[in-house]
């Protein structure tokens, strides 16, 4: 492609993005845009499917049949959301098997939040309330992402996920108003999940050199810090409503702005967990790889059968 043509394409692309239009799979796009999207969508998909594990652990132990059904439906949605996202990544020329390989070998990452253990039932409630609450903050702006297939996948996900946070908050409400042991369980879960939830938004954008580019490309709409602040402002009153204590002695409401100031986040922990040294990284990846490898003979059988049928039809 001539340099002049390249420049024209680049200008047309940026004009579409700047006008809040949508880029579609067969449109010309800068290679960096494609790569950034594949990386982000793939790791988002990985987060969905790894995210099945911490909660899935509790399906067989759920304390009531109603909660069991809700949890099964939720974990099932996560598998579905993973599929929507891999599907969106494939429109960019990526390949699901390759992306899974990158996950299985630790070369691509997933959200650090899923490397924490779920040691009590209240953790299932806390994940719905806090983790899905944080996810909604992130995902709603993504429904307006410049890349059409990603934006559309997010629209579906957001529609389906509206129940995830609510069921978590509801389950938390029941615990917070339950027996002393249940209440203790709820507070303990909040204590353990609060800071990792704040870390979900990532380090300040000042420490993320690529953020400005993602914003210019219309992939990212708000800074990591903006979203984190929104989350804190939305969640603290909910904790108060539950009568639970947010584990941050520095938390203060600024009456002027209506926003909460909060304490320092331990980013060394975040980087350690991202690198692979969180409490459950090894478990999560090992389980995922085991599921994939244990299922290989099934996938091979389905492919072999399809081949046989095709040959039979041709004969």
């Amino acid at each position: 492609m001539s340099e002049q043509l390249q420049a024209e394409f680049q200008a047309a692309f940026q004009a579409e993005v700047d006008a809040d239009g949508r880029i579609e799979p067969r449109d010309w796009m800068p290679d960096g845009y494609r790569r950034t999207l594949v990386r982000q969508i793939a790791q988002h998909a990985h987060s969905e499917i790894i995210g099945m594990q911490p909660e899935g652990n509790w399906i067989t132990r759920a304390p009531s049949l109603r909660r069991k059904c809700i949890l099964v439906a939720k974990v099932q949605d996560e598998a579905g959301h993973g599929l929507y996202l891999y599907s969106a990544a494939e429109t960019l020329g990526a390949d699901r098997d390759e992306l899974l390989d990158l996950l299985h070998t630790g070369r691509q990452k997933y959200s650090t939040i899923f490397n924490y253990p779920t040691t009590s039932w209240a953790d299932v409630a806390a994940i719905g309330w806090l983790v899905d609450g944080a996810a909604i903050m992130n995902q709603v702006p993504l429904t307006r992402c410049s890349y059409g297939p990603y934006a559309r996948a997010m629209t579906r996900v957001c529609k389906e996920e509206s129940f995830h946070q609510r069921q978590g908050f509801e389950a938390m409400t029941v615990l917070a108003n339950g027996t002393p042991a249940q209440r203790q369980m709820a507070q303990d879960a909040l204590d353990r999940w609060w800071w990792p939830s704040l870390m979900m938004f990532g380090p300040s954008d000042g420490d993320s050199p690529n953020s400005a580019q993602s914003m210019a490309w219309g992939i990212k709409r708000f800074s990591n810090d903006e979203l984190r602040q929104r989350f804190v402002d939305a969640t603290v009153p909910q904790a108060e409503h539950l009568g639970l204590t947010v584990p941050d002695p520095e938390l203060r409401l600024d009456p002027e702005t209506g926003s909460y100031a909060f304490g320092e986040i331990d980013w060394t922990e975040f980087y350690a967990v991202m690198k692979g040294d969180g409490p459950c990284n090894r478990d999560r990846v090992r389980n995922r790889v085991a599921a994939h490898e244990d299922g290989a003979w099934v996938r091979e059988a389905a492919a072999a059968y399809a081949d046989k049928q095709a040959r039979r039809a041709a004969a």
């Binding site: 594990q53 899935g56 069991k68 099964v72 099932q76 995922r288 085991a290």
Partner: peptide, 18 residues
């Protein structure tokens, strides 16, 4: 439901949980 996150492919997780 023991199959959650353990099935041979993602599509099958959805089906078995259904």
């Amino acid at each position: 439901s023991e199959w959650a996150a353990r099935s041979p492919q993602l599509e099958e997780d959805v089906a078995l949980l259904n």
